[in-house]
Amino acid sequence: MAVSKSTAHAGRTGALFVAPAGLLTLVLFVIPLGILVWMSLQDYPLLGKPTFTGFDNYLDIPGNEVFIQAIGFTLAYTVVTTVVMFLISFVLVAIANSRRRATKFYRTSYFLPYVVGTAAATLLWFVDSDPVIGVFNQVLVGLHLVDKPIAFLASPTLAFWSIIVLVSWKFMGFQVIVLLMGLQSIPTALFEAARVDGASRWQQLRFITIPSLRPTLALLFILSVTGSLLAFDQFLILTKGGPDNSTVSVVFAVYNTAFVNFDMGKAAALSVVLLVVLLLISAIQLPLLRRKDV
């Protein structure tokens, strides 16, 4: 519905308003998507000329041990991060939703690490977990929890858990604030009616809170899974993929293929596979989100 009376003229005006965004989307999104698919069909050294090789890059993927290992690691990381974050965020959101004094302060404290960039947050962790000058070890030794400083990044298991703790600290606040918004959008009348009917705290949680939060939980679940599958910064910065390539994530493996092995074709094929997998995950999970009215 145009405001102006002349529809043809109004049509052109509307298109002109949208043109800059549309043009940018065409040049920096649609065309690169095409280039990505084209790249994946070439033997393409970073500094050389591409030659068409059909589906060779895709056929090589099952034999690419580094990538297969990265998939295993990324899946393990995704499962553990998601479970840990959900468990802790339930405790934190109970605090954040309280009507007691100082709640606003607690809420802000839990959220602040989220607004700090991943690179800066990871470097903080790098300094603090250092065996020589890091404060984590100083506290642990000071409390006599350990005898001598721990080299947190020296063994695959410790490095894995160090990253889990870092990521929980960094991203927890987001989950808490979204859960809180979900909680606060539940009409209080529901709880009042339940109390009048003599429902216990537990029954209110079971029959009102959890069902009302289902779309929020589904959304957080999707974001946690897709975000973890694409994680990169913390691995490159904190552990550099080590020790022994034990913390190389999928995106990290793609990055290495392109900019360490200079193989743009293979990297593009891996990207296409990753893209398709994530699209499938989103497609499968969409119905979860739509269940609002059930």
Binding site: G11, R12, T25, V30, L36, V254, A268, V272
Partner: peptide
């Protein structure tokens, strides 16, 4: 406004959200 290609443009812009941005950086 209404104009030709409105829905297609809108959906394409939103599709940027569906594509993991890390996969777009090589092209």
């Amino acid at each position: 406004y209404e104009f030709r290609g409105k829905n297609l443009t809108f959906v394409t812009i939103l599709a940027i959200l569906m594509v993991p941005y890390a996969t777009m950086l090589l092209p």
